[in-house]
Design a protein around this nucleic acid. Structure first.
Length: 273
DNA sequence: AGAGGGATCTTCT
DNA sequence: GAAGATCCCTCTC
């Protein structure tokens, strides 16, 4: 039997059962549905480990644009039901401001069932389904209804699991995906990390299955390209604002803006007058 | 390398 | 009833 089948089944089982409070998620994690060939992980150890490393509430409490840039170089960690940890370095984000932003789901300051997570405390995940088949994940920031879309990750650890999850969702006998194809897009990274609607409204500082840790290679201003957001059409001036940010020269970015990069190169790293 | 279309379903008008 | 913060495959230049 294909291993990916089993992985997907475990995923949906766990996510159905732990869609409520974070404390339950932790309990579910320690009772593996699979039997106990491996040693059970200590709750104490897990908590201790996370406390020393993970990004806390003060990090997420930044204005939207600031948080979108600050995410670049930080690491998203996902612990799968089978215990494997997936690590990905954030290399591309988009800022969706509050009510004024005509391209945001929170435009006009309107709160609905779907976008409620955008209005929750900074560090809350907003996951929505798009085109009926894919998911996108955002992180709520400071500012009413503001959130940052995670667009691309550089896979660091658990690439085999990512490939399984990505391939399982595709049809037919496809060639194995290259590393750069695993997480270079908002819905691709959700597939690779097993993120779906069950993660909506979860808290990145409290959850046992997903969190962030500080990266050790953080970009300087000159390493960050700011350009227009993807898939935002007919939204007037909001279609053209530079609210997408990515690491210049990084091959895991989904869409590169060569024109803007050329202009940056001419001007050089220092701000022009 | 770039253009075009299909998949597929929730949300809001 | 239509649109949508996407992806992937196919066709053409």
């Amino acid at each position: 039997m294909p291993r990916k089948r089993k992985l997907l089944a475990e995923l949906s089982a766990l996510q159905r059962s732990s869609s409520i409070p974070p404390s339950d998620a932790l309990e579910n994690l320690n009772t593996t549905p699979d039997g106990d060939s491996s040693p059970k992980s200590s709750k104490y150890f897990a908590t201790e480990k996370k406390k020393s490393f993970q990004l806390e509430a003060d990090f997420f409490s930044q204005p939207c644009i600031s948080l979108a840039k600050s995410f670049l170089g930080q690491i998203l960690v996902r612990r799968l039901p089978d215990g494997r940890e997936l690590w990905g370095r954030i290399v591309e984000t988009e800022a969706y401001l509050g009510g004024e932003d005509e391209a945001s789901h929170s435009k006009g300051g309107k709160q609905t069932q779907r976008n409620a997570a955008m209005f929750m405390k900074p560090g809350t995940l907003y996951v929505y389904q798009i085109y009926g088949i894919y998911f996108c994940v955002n992180v709520s920031s400071q500012g009413e209804g503001a959130a940052v879309l995670l667009r691309s990750l550089e896979p660091l650890q658990g690439l085999d699991a990512m490939r399984e999850l990505r391939s399982a969702a595709r049809k037919g006998p496809a060639k194995p995906l290259k590393d750069w194809q695993l997480c270079n897009g908002p819905s691709k990274l959700c597939q690779a990390f097993g993120i779906d609607k069950a993660f909506d409204q979860r808290d990145l500082t409290q959850d046992a299955a997903i969190w962030m840790i500080p990266g050790h290679e953080l970009p300087g201003e000159q390493d960050v390209v700011a350009t227009t957001r993807i898939g935002v059409g007919n939204r007037g001036e909001w279609s053209h604002k530079p609210l997408r940010f990515y690491l210049r020269g990084n091959k895991f970015v989904s869409v590169v803006d060569k024109k803007i990069e050329r202009e940056m190169a001419v001007r050089g790293p220092s701000p022009c007058s």
